[in-house]
Write a protein that binds this DNA or RNA. Sequence first.
DNA 1: GTCTATATGTTGATAGAC
DNA 2: GTCTATCAACATATAGAC
Lengths: 188, 188
Amino acid sequence: MPAQTSTRDRVLSAYEELLINEGPRGATLDAVTALAGVSKGGLLYHFKNKEALAAGVVERLKELAAADLEQMRTDPEGPSRYLVRTSVYVGSPLDRALIAAVRLAQCSDPAASDLLQQIHRDWFDLVFHEVGDRAIARAIMLLGDGLYYNEGLPGGWPQQENSPTSGPVEELLEIVDRLKALTPAGRP
Amino acid sequence: MPAQTSTRDRVLSAYEELLINEGPRGATLDAVTALAGVSKGGLLYHFKNKEALAAGVVERLKELAAADLEQMRTDPEGPSRYLVRTSVYVGSPLDRALIAAVRLAQCSDPAASDLLQQIHRDWFDLVFHEVGDRAIARAIMLLGDGLYYNEGLPGGWPQQENSPTSGPVEELLEIVDRLKALTPAGRP
DNA sequence: GTCTATATGTTGATAGAC
DNA sequence: GTCTATCAACATATAGAC
């Protein structure tokens, strides 16, 4: 694993960046070549067409998500808190790959859609196993989803710095704890 | 207000439909003309360019959202329950206009972004006024956001019919009630 | 108000030199 | 492995007939 990123990796990251910031529309081959500092021929040597580029993003996400799932499974605070904690966009490689894949899925990329659905299901399984109640688990998932889309997707519900709906994660984690505590009393 | 939809309205609806189902990429003028059953010249008579088409979607959303906000303000169950209840995508004109605008915002349409942000802020203000606690209000908003994105955006976290994370709204509304009830005890 | 025809620019992809 | 042409396909937009 060289610290020196390969051209292939640079191209892939540039494509991710453009998917995130400009959307699928702006992520043209020309734009990718410009951002990656490579010619069109150079790009197409590594990825024979645009479809292969998208497949590269999906493959990268698959690996990052697998590692993250293991983190979530073994986190000392438990999967629910881990999920919400890590649902605020910080621009990590996983964050970027996830958002890029969401963009691809929005343009009807079946591989991206399938993987995102799988990831989402994996998360739910861990949360459900922890809290024991489907509705509560669902609510916690939605909290995370809302966070991801709100603060991760430029142009979702576009947020300004001090938007009333943004704020510290801690207050949300406290809500998560209360939701978890609600579970036993959940059946009247 | 004729029940017979004008060509202009048909064009606008076709553009919305394509934004939702095919994404901004697939919402080409040709596709719009095909779906609306009008020629390119006919379309461009009503909207002189693509930017005007997008502005038309934003304008339509503005009107629908204003009417919806009034509903939310006066709903007998209160704004929070109204928000979550109506955050499940049912394909209403408002739903469609909202998702279409989200797509536009994702492709860096400033007018769409601004309006979406304003709508989101209006919702939050009502919810916050009802529950009195910023963190709880934020959690309820995120619940709604997650719902919207999950079940409204094709390709978000793509859901199958009986996905573990989908389910009846009622159970979520119960969670909302419990969140609201949490408020007084919220300060330890 | 709606149509056809056409101009102009982009985009994805190929061929072949270095 | 990377580059420079170059092309066919498609997108937006205009002009003008009906």
